[in-house]
Each structure stands twice: as C-alpha cells, then as structure tokens.
Write a protein that binds this DNA or RNA. Sequence first.
DNA 1: CCGGGTCTTGTCCATCGGTACAATGTCAGC
DNA 2: GCTGACATTGTACCGATGGACAAGACCCGG
Lengths: 204, 204
Amino acid sequence: MAQMFIFPPESGELPRWREAFPDARLLGPQQARAQVGEGDKVWVMSRLEGWRELVMTLSQRGAVVSVLSQSPTYAEALSALDAGARGYAHALSPPELLRQMEIVISHQGIWVWPELMKQVIGGAFRALGGAASLHSEVLEGLTERERAVALVVAEGLSNKEVARQLAITERTVKAHLGAIFRKLGIRDRMQLILKLSHQESEVP
Amino acid sequence: MAQMFIFPPESGELPRWREAFPDARLLGPQQARAQVGEGDKVWVMSRLEGWRELVMTLSQRGAVVSVLSQSPTYAEALSALDAGARGYAHALSPPELLRQMEIVISHQGIWVWPELMKQVIGGAFRALGGAASLHSEVLEGLTERERAVALVVAEGLSNKEVARQLAITERTVKAHLGAIFRKLGIRDRMQLILKLSHQESEVP
DNA sequence: CCGGGTCTTGTCCATCGGTACAATGTCAGC
DNA sequence: GCTGACATTGTACCGATGGACAAGACCCGG
C-alpha cells in the first residue's frame, strides 16, 4: 500500500511529476486494473482514453486517485471528482505542489487546481439554488415537510441520504414518502421523479 | 500566524475539538474581525449568527477557515464552501479527524464530511449535464438492447414490467441495467432518469 | 379540555433492486 | 478456427424500499 503509479498512454514521462515522486512505479491501464488496491495512490493522465472509467473502478476499490490534465477545464475537473478522483491538477504542476497535493488527498481531502475550485464550488452552489427554488403545483397538496422530502428525493438521493440531509431518521423519511405517494396517487419514488422533472421543464 | 481560534456564540466549548487543539485560542466574533489575519486557522460554528459573512471576510483576508456544524447538511456545506471556507464537518467529529482536517486545509485542500462531499460533487456534476455533456448523447456508448432497456426504465417501469415489455427475463433486464450503470457511471435507475430527463430539457 | 393535523420515531416484513459468482448461444471479423 | 462483443438466463446474497401497525409530542381551533 501507499505506492504510487501513473498511467500515461505511451507518451513520455512527466519530469516534474517524477521529480516529486522519484520512487513511484509506472503502470499501464491493464496492469493498473490488476494490481492497484486499497490505499494505493494513483495518478492518471486525462489524456488516457477511458480514464474516467479507470478512475471509477480504481477509486471504488479504495485507491486514492488523482487526475492530471494537460489542459484543465471546469467540466473535466467535475467529471474527475464525480468519478471518484480526489485530486485534479495541471500535469505540469511544480513538484512542491504535487507533493502538497499528495498530503491532502491521503488525508481524505480534495485537491483541485485553486482557480477551478472556486468555479466548482460556485457552480454547485448556484445549482443548488436552482434546485431549491423548484416549485410546482404537484406539490401543493403536501405539507411543508413532505415538500422538502419530495424535493430532495427528486434529486436522486436515497432514503438514508435524505435522512442525513434533513437531520431526521430514515424511518421519518419513509413516513413522509408514504404520505406523498398516497396523496399524489403514485407508487414509488421513480414516478415522483418523473412527475417533478416533467413539471420542471415547463419553466417560463 | 498559524494559531487557531474558534467562535462559539457564548456556548460551552467543544471537548473533542479542544482535545485536538489544546493550544488554540478562543475568540468572539468581534475580536476575530480585529485580530485574525493571513495564515491563521479559524474554526467557526455554524450555530453562530452571521457565520457566513464572518467566514467570507476572514477567508478573504487570507485566513484558513473551517466550519463546524451541529447538524451538517448539503446546503450548509455548499454555503460554507462558497463563502470561502475550506473545511466543513460535524461539530462532534473525533479529534483525529479534526487534526487530519487541519492538515488538509493548511495545504490548500478542501475537506468535507465524506458523504456530503459525494453529494456536493455529484450535484454539481449532474447540474451541468453530467458525463453526457462530454459526449453529445447519453446513450451513445450503449448497445442496441441496453438503449431499449434504458428508455423503458426511464418511463418509470419496474424490472418486472420492463421484462414483460421486452419479452425477456427479469434477470436479463438486470444484466443490461448493470451494464448501463457501469457505462454511464451512475449507481441506480433514479440517476438514469435524471440524466435522461435532463438531456431532454437541455438547450444548447 | 379535546380532537385533528403534523412531525417524529419504532418494529416487523414482503418485495424490489443491484451485484457477484457464473454459464450458454450467436455472430462478425481476423 | 478462434476471439471478442453481445444477448440471454440462472442462483444467491444483501441492502434499499414501501407498507402495516403502531405510538408520543406539539400546536391550533372549537
């Protein structure tokens, strides 16, 4: 555990990265899927084809994955983080920064190229504002609390996640959901999502 | 620089936090605005009135701010991060976690209660159209049969119903669904619906 | 004070959903 | 002929889900 790897397609190595981690091992994507396990620190180039899926499988397996990009973008950063990566930076970042990054991500942190970070957070914040301001006549017959549950469920969260979000028990979430289903005449959360997302697209 | 502070309104101290940072100084909001400067590590309780503005001013001034909450929520986490905080956690987090958090944020990292982090990232990602926006169509990577299943599932039908509809076994539906989830990088049918219905309403 | 509505939580249970271990057959391409 | 992608189905497991059958706390109007 705690070794390091990188997966360039077949391109040359990254000098600054190598300077930061002289003892790291190099692997190809195939070897990675075979050898990487819990706690390994992995660095993946976004140039690599299928990097996103690779990141997903490796991080699900417990590896600590960082993505390096030749041309970092907002969208790619989000994509990497969503895939389970814990770090995202420019491929030519100086060694000190890469080492710092390693410290952060091995302590359960997230590290993103700072200017991107502001955009990521800002984007998420605005996205939430949009989601929270969602009103529809569908929800009119519901109580305050039921509306809250319905909206969060419509984001795709599980009962457990909704419970945490609203600081109540999973049992209570179920209670509200039961009432919602009964009042709206539907049978499960799938139909709730459909009802709400159809409503949503009629925004003037 | 690098001292630590906290700002409870007037409430009692947090034992676990104190255990993590025995040498920290305690300040009120007023003193904070006067004394905190570049590089200071600050911990703010979200119970404190006007915490968000305080976080904003302090972090603009170069302080490293973390927010502690009695009842952490998705919205509050985003709000804190957007205000410039670099850490967000439960107020009763164990000392080891708090110290780890400090390591992360003093190295330019972001630290958020891991389960919230997934939601923060996932929410932002989906709000921007998800992985689909990287391609032109969500379903392009799928096979003929997988597309068929995806479309029917997105209508809100259960596995059993999909099976009847396509004249195959429920088991086969599950097989296709598994492949769909893996290829699209999602975890369940709810996110499939969200991805597809989002695509519909997307305006280029 | 009492009834009703709302919010909350509990236990129990049948079912559903997703995944991990498969296997079988087809069909296109090298 | 063999390999790889695709479609199909099986068994088994386990967490998630929704319903049944409760109960206590709070608040508000009658």
